[in-house]
């Protein structure tokens, strides 16, 4: 009856955010602070600088929640956030990392 397996369900209940930011100390605090102050758990974080190091890209894996559109709007208001793109929870960026997180 239930056609979705456990992993697919997990993917459905999650979202991946791709956030381009200015690269300087403190930006990560600004971004994750939006989530922590709303007791909104961030399940995964990945961040590396882009080409010349002036900017970074933060990837967040978060639970789907009715508050997510508001979170994105609040994120877009941050001075150091250049753009936020929302992806499905099964986006390759975290899937390909799973090998590093086997216990």
């Amino acid at each position: 009856m239930n056609a979705t397996n456990r992993n697919e369900q997990k993917a459905l209940a999650r979202a991946v955010l791709e956030i381009d930011v200015n690269n300087h100390p403190g930006v990560m605090s600004h971004v994750v602070g939006l989530f922590s102050r709303r007791t909104y758990n961030v399940e995964g974080i990945l961040c590396l600088p882009l080409e010349n190091g002036q900017r970074s890209r933060i990837w967040l894996l978060v639970n789907e929640d009715e508050r997510l559109p508001q979170m994105i709007k609040q994120g877009e208001k941050l001075e150091d956030v250049i753009a936020i793109r929302r992806h499905q929870g099964d986006h390759a960026v975290f899937q390909q990392l799973s090998g590093f997180f086997q216990s």
Binding site: S29, H30, G33, E79
Partner: peptide
């Protein structure tokens, strides 16, 4: 001060 003021400012600088 920078960390303390993040959630209560529109923006902050060190």
């Amino acid at each position: 001060t920078y960390g303390l003021s993040i959630p209560i400012t529109k923006h902050n600088f060190l």
